[in-house]
Amino acid sequence: MKRIVLAGILTLGGLLTVKAQCKTESAIIENFDTWKDINKCWTAKPGGKAMLYASDKKIIFYSMNSPGEDMYLITPKIKAGNYTLSLDISDNGGETTLEIFSVNNASDTKSYVSIVKPSKITGDKKTFNISLKKDMHLGLKVLLNGVHQAVYMDNFSLKQKK
């Protein structure tokens, strides 16, 4: 019994250590080419039966048979400041939107505050001006309105303005 408890404590300590190694960023340039799964410093929050995963050198939001579910990809923590965010984002048809949130606590959706209103995904590169008053994460929320609908995200670039 003591070994089981000790193993549990060591495992929990290891998990906490992994998250503690993620540092607060002042820039993120990510093309997702080397990702086999979601990076440990990022958080994927798929809704219900929908899927959010890394594959084919990009991030894929996929509705399966569950359209309308909220799906979020949360960045590592970002230093307070003004940024330019650009990314390539496209879909496989239908109505899809992207909304951006400041996120205080990645595991608590009540701490998500919309900072860029939902915009239609059209297959073009998107560019946004982002302002964070304190160190926070960014949350990218994708809404898929159809069955077997997908959104593909690539070439994420967050650069601090001078």
Results as ranks from 00 to 15, higher is better:
S119D: 13
D124S: 12
L10N: 03
L140S: 07
I38T: 05
L138F: 06
N129L: 01
D124M: 12
K58F: 00
G94P: 13
L85A: 03
M71Y: 12
D37F: 04
T24C: 02
M1P: 15
K110G: 07
I28E: 05
C22L: 04
K77T: 11
T96K: 00
Y83C: 09
N129Q: 06
K57Q: 05
L144E: 14
K45L: 11
D124I: 12
K126W: 03
L16N: 11
L10C: 08
S114W: 07
Q149L: 06
G48F: 00
H148N: 11
K40G: 09
N155P: 06
C22Q: 00
N155C: 02
S26M: 08
N129I: 05
N65V: 13
K45F: 10
T97S: 04
N31E: 09
K23L: 03
G47P: 02
S114H: 04
K77G: 08
S102N: 11
K45G: 10
M1L: 08
L52D: 05
I28T: 07
D124H: 08
P67N: 05
L15G: 07
K58N: 10
D91P: 11
W35D: 00
E25W: 01
S102I: 15
A27G: 14
G48Q: 08
K110L: 07
Q160W: 09
K110W: 07
L52T: 07
K58Y: 06
N104L: 15
E69W: 00
T11E: 04
G8N: 02
N129A: 04
A7V: 01
I29E: 10
N104D: 14
I9M: 07
V103A: 10
S107W: 13
N92Y: 13
K23V: 09
L85C: 11
G8W: 01
I74D: 09
T122H: 07
G13P: 06
K58L: 06
I9P: 10
L144A: 13
N145T: 15
D33W: 01
L143A: 07
G139T: 03
E30R: 04
F61W: 12
D91Q: 10
N155M: 08
K162H: 08
I4N: 13
E69F: 01
K2N: 13
S107R: 10
M64D: 12
I115D: 03
M136Y: 09
K120T: 15
M64V: 13
P67H: 03
